[in-house]
Design a binder for these strands. Structure first.
Length: 694
DNA sequence: CTTAGGG
DNA sequence: CCCTAAG
């Protein structure tokens, strides 16, 4: 059939005139962020704290009475003690996060009991722009950097200094904490920041006043556990009866967390150079990880966050970023496991999730001027830990406990209605990150649903009125930290206005949130793309999970249940056992193509034709690293299908008919083209009357 | 690594 | 989206 050239405004279809670039050109190496290897996984950090705490209590129990320890913020306590006991002395200075606008000072020695307030200030200017993102990025890396120096690579001993907890993020207002250091690293966007600084100063940890900050209580989900009884809390809450009298080795045995490790630890470059030699092995592992096993994932977290999409770690990243991580983790696990015999075992379910948002009457609203500013004081991150002393007191007490959740008592977020969700996420992240030391990303939940569009404003999203705030929640998730500063315009160059988030937000925005389990059921037939069936997944959970249940995890509720079994089964991921769920792979999160993406795709295909997906990718999706050429090809496939069906049958974000028409036209054109080529190859010189000219 | 297709 | 066979 002859296509009307008019259809295509420009030159109509053009036969690929240029030869396929040498494959060599493929080498695209971007987003390779050097993530600190020592980046500490939040979970580990927390777990470590717990461990430290326990150790602490035991050691201090001799001289100091338990109450003492109890009175003080566990963190501070632990930190201090650590400092003395551990080899590397803590640096008295704080960690400066770099930008002058936002610096995070982490006092090495938080004074116990002191009501330290932390402020997080973000100037308006930065709220939506890159600066914020930028600083954020810097902050993270910086933190991890710093921490890495202070903290030994997490090892079996888990010596981690958690000086990172008390944090103050502020533009530079005087503050007790601030004395700890200078903004050595600052130097980013001085001008803007200067302005920013003036916009507000929340130096004093006072609640912000005139504005109605939204008070949020962020709750960290629970670290899993192994046992019952003893309850203790970290971070401020009195520790109740920590039965560990002796040294207890602290172990982190995350059943499904190994994945988190991978995401937290450090993304590995995906360049070949960094890849482990054996590809065959990779391949095998990959296979193992895939299909058959990924389904197990749901099981693990199925209880985690029922109504909020469970957090899932982007396991699929492994593929891209290498397998080093895997090994790394395995090693860790192995080590940990070895020690598990006489240690604490903390199993944590990977995602730190949080939700409950407490709407404080007084400060109930979000509004206010410019930048998003958040301030929160740390009465202590609180968490409840349920511990249990092993019945047998022989050598070392075995303490198994679970940390139900960590909480950040008060987190005041004060942002203008015009702030974007993305900035809100960042703001919260800043706060949380400062506290946990990075490695996390924040997800926003509203009405139980994840709000992924970072570009929507709170107003648009409806996160403004007090009533609504009640349904606002945040989730903490392990961050893949691919802070790709480079990837600013992840989206289509041409079509998208560059109001796109920014580096940081990118990572934040990346829907690692969807339960990994997401789609399977949700995936609609190859009709339309898009469609936010994010929520539809919940149901699938149960059914699906059930199938997957296995004895190893008697109780699927990742965090809650403390299987009666030994650590072996639970915490320590049976690394040594069968391949099994140790490596549960998650399905990539669904990312419906936006209209602009479709537009770009159509345009590219019109010009390049089908069959050259790599080129299409390079041409229009170079910066959209989450779109592989296969994705593009698949999308095209669905587009063609969509274009053929009745509009009523289409689902998801409607694609302009105009585009669909172009899809059909292009599809027809290129199909014919291909057919022609084919016949040629066969030597049959078919004359195709109106075929496109070559 | 890419394509092309089925699932 | 995933998985794979093929190239």
């Amino acid at each position: 059939m002859v296509l009307k050239r008019q259809y295509y405004g420009f030159n109509g279809f053009r036969v690929p005139s240029f030869p396929k670039g040498p494959r060599s050109s493929r080498g695209r190496g971007l987003l390779q962020k050097n993530v600190n290897e020592n980046q500490i996984c939040a979970i580990e950090l927390l777990a470590s704290l717990a461990g430290k705490l326990l150790q602490e209590s035991e050691s201090s129990s001799a001289s100091s009475n338990a109450s003492e320890a109890i009175e003080q913020p566990a963190v501070g306590n632990a930190v201090i003690k650590n400092e003395q006991s551990e080899d590397a002395p803590l640096k008295p200075d704080c960690f400066d996060l770099g930008s002058s606008e936002e610096s995070v000072c982490i006092p090495a020695l938080p004074s116990p009991n002191s009501d330290i307030k932390f402020l997080l200030k973000v100037s308006q200017n930065n709220a939506n722009d890159s600066i914020l993102g930028h600083s954020s990025v810097i902050s993270n890396s910086d933190i991890s950097d710093k921490i890495s120096k202070e903290v030994k690579p997490i090892s079996c001993t888990n010596k981690i200094k958690c000086e990172a907890l008390p944090v103050k993020v502020d533009g530079g207002s005087p503050n007790p904490i601030e004395s700890c250091g200078g903004n050595v690293d600052s130097g980013f966007g001085g001008q803007q920041q200067a302005d920013a600084l003036e916009t507000g100063d929340l130096a004093t940890g006072k609640t912000s006043n005139s504005k109605d900050p939204v008070k949020l209580c962020v709750q960290f989900p629970a670290l899993n556990t192994v046992d019952k009884n003893t309850k203790s809390s970290l971070f401020g809450d009195p520790i109740q009866d920590i039965s560990v009298k002796r040294r207890a080795d602290f172990k982190l045995g995350l059943s499904d967390n190994d994945e988190n490790f991978s995401s937290c630890c450090k993304p590995v470059n995906k360049s070949k150079a960094l890849r482990p030699p054996s590809r065959i092995g990779d391949r095998r592992i990959r296979k193992l990880l895939t299909s058959k096993y990924w389904k197990l994932a749901p099981k693990l977290r199925d209880y985690e966050n029922p109504r909020a999409d469970g957090e899932v770690k982007p396991l699929y990243r492994k593929r891209k970023y290498g397998h080093k991580c895997e090994r790394y983790h395995q090693d860790n696990f192995y080590k940990r496991r070895k020690f598990s015999d006489d240690g604490l075992i903390i199993a944590s379910d990977g995602g730190l999730s949080s939700e409950s948002v407490c709407n404080s009457p007084e400060k109930g609203k979000i509004r206010d001027k410019n930048g998003a500013s958040a301030m929160f004081h740390r009465d202590g991150l609180s968490s409840s830990v349920i511990g249990h002393q092993s019945s047998i007191h022989s050598k070392e007490s075995h303490v198994k406990f679970s940390i139900k959740s960590f909480r950040i008592p008060e987190l005041y977020i004060d942002v203008p209605e015009t702030a974007t969700v993305g900035s809100l996420k960042r703001t919260v992240l800043e706060a949380v990150t400062a506290i946990l030391g990075g490695g996390l990303r924040v997800g926003v939940l509203f009405h139980g649903k994840k709000v992924r569009d970072d570009n929507r404003t709170l107003l648009q999203t409806g996160i403004t009125s007090e009533e609504n705030l009640n349904t606002l929640g945040f989730s903490l998730e392990p961050s893949p930290i691919q802070a790709s500063t480079i990837m600013c315009n992840e989206d289509l160059p041409a079509s998208l206005p560059c109001e796109t988030p920014l580096p940081i937000s990118r990572s934040l925005a990346s829907p690692a949130l969807d339960l990994g389990i997401s789609d399977e059921l949700a995936d609609p037939p190859p009709l339309t793309d898009s469609g936010n069936n994010i929520e539809s997944n919940h149901k699938s959970f149960s059914s699906q999970t059930d199938l997957l249940t296995d004895r190893t995890l008697p109780d699927s509720r990742a965090l809650v249940p403390v299987p009666h079994m030994s650590a072996e089964a639970l915490a320590v991921v049976p690394l040594n056992q069968k391949p099994r769920r140790t490596e549960v792979v998650q399905r990539r999160t669904r990312r419906p193509f936006s209209v602009s993406e479709v537009e770009a795709l159509v345009r590219a295909v019109e010009e390049l034709g089908t069959g050259r997906w790599r080129d299409v990718k390079l041409r229009s999706f170079e910066n959209a690293d989450h779109r592989t050429y296969v994705d593009l090809k698949d999308k095209w496939k669905t587009l063609v299908h969509t274009a053929k069906i009745a509009p009523q049958q289409r689902r998801g974000e409607p694609v302009p008919q105009e585009l669909l028409d172009r899809v059909l036209a292009a599809h027809a054109y290129w199909s014919q083209y291909q057919a022609k080529q084919h016949s040629k190859n066969q030597g049959a010189i078919l004359k195709i009357a109106d075929g496109p000219t070559v």
